[in-house]
Simulated assay, not measured.
Amino acid sequence: MTTPLLRLGYRRCAELTRQYGTTYYWGARLLPAAQRRDVYAVYALCRLADDIVDEPDRVDLAVPAEGGPAERLAAFREHFRSALARGYSDEPVMAAVVDSLRRRRTDPECFDRFFDAMALDLTRTTWASWSELRDGYMEGSAAVVGEMMLPVLEPLSPAAKVPARALGLAFQLTNFLRDVAEDLDRGRVYLPADDLARHGADPWERRVTPQWRAFLAEQIARNRVLYTEAARGLPLLPPASRRCVGTALVLYSRILDRIEEADYDVFSGRIRVPGREKLGVALRSLVLGPPRWDAPPVRIRPARIPEGVTG
């Protein structure tokens, strides 16, 4: 039974997704309404926690307003934990999140890893290597998001878990490569320090040099390996979920193309895929079926892996 509180909460989750996660939003539009609202609920929880850390001045009614980021994140985590245990919250967004997660029987352990990763952002600003970044941070901030979304997508096989985790990693690595300047503004570098040193690249210079181009080209190749791994999971999803995930994969991976087209300049402004392109891909997917991630119109190039680069 959907109460007025839940209807309000799910509507607010959809608004948050449309405002801050347009790729998720347009991908989820290809799902039946019952699944769509659950995608929005997972996204909203993650967005609100992330904003406490990254945008502390942006205070949503759904999150605690008192204290610094560490105190607010801890309070939000406890609110979530207690609401999930009770199965209820008086706050609309949290009520929707709890309703969704309990219906989908999402493993609560996923959220322990997620909140632990969010807390790391308050103390860590650099990462020594790709393996440290992937396993020490992205495991809880990205791979686990793929696990959270999987019950909503109703996979046909448990084997879909590995590609779902790869897609979470792929999405976040794309964010890291696109948002270098924004992260620098926050005093953070989500780039492997050993790879930067090997190329002689310094993001703090905020300029495109031959060293920076070589470094970023290598990271983009690594990112495309992850998209390749994620695409293997598409046949393991039912048609509607395949369209949703395939569309999101295509749209997010196009950011990499646009970084290349901008000559690896991620400092001058945020690189975006236009809204009309997102809508066009979503509509074509709805009419023609799940997009082939490697077909020419998709514009994702086969991964060319420089020597020494692994996923």
Rank of each mutant, 00 (worst) to 15 (best):
V53G: 07
V53S: 11
D54T: 06
P56L: 05
D57T: 02
D57P: 01
D57L: 01
V59T: 12
V59Q: 11
A62V: 09
V63H: 06
A65K: 06
E66H: 13
G67S: 01
G68H: 07
G68A: 14
G68R: 13
A70D: 12
A70N: 04
E71Q: 15
E71G: 11
L73I: 03
L73H: 00
L73W: 05
A74G: 12
R77A: 13
R77K: 03
R77P: 08
E78V: 04
E78F: 01
F80P: 06
R81T: 15
S82W: 05
S82H: 13
L84V: 03
A85P: 08
A85G: 07
A85T: 12
Y88C: 11
Y88G: 08
S89L: 05
D90C: 06
E91S: 08
P92L: 03
P92Q: 10
M94C: 14
M94W: 05
A95K: 05
A96T: 01
A96N: 07
A96Q: 10
A96Y: 05
V98F: 01
V98Y: 07
S100W: 01
S100I: 09
L101A: 02
R103N: 02
R104P: 08
T106K: 02
D107Q: 08
D107M: 04
D107H: 07
P108E: 00
E109K: 13
E109R: 14
C110F: 11
D112E: 15
R113I: 00
R113V: 08
F114C: 04
F115C: 12
F115Q: 03
D116R: 10
D116K: 02
D116I: 01
A117Y: 08
M118D: 04
M118T: 11
L120F: 00
L122R: 00
R124W: 09
T125Y: 00
T125P: 04
T125N: 06
W127R: 02
W127H: 15
W127T: 10
A128S: 15
S129H: 05
S129K: 05
W130S: 08
E132T: 12
E132P: 03
L133I: 09
L133G: 11
R134W: 08
D135N: 14
D135I: 04
D135F: 01
D135P: 09
Y137I: 06
M138N: 13
E139S: 14
S141W: 02
A142V: 10
A143Q: 09
V144E: 09
V145F: 08
G146T: 05
G146L: 07
E147G: 07
E147Y: 00
M148C: 15
L150P: 06
L150G: 03
L150V: 08
L150A: 03
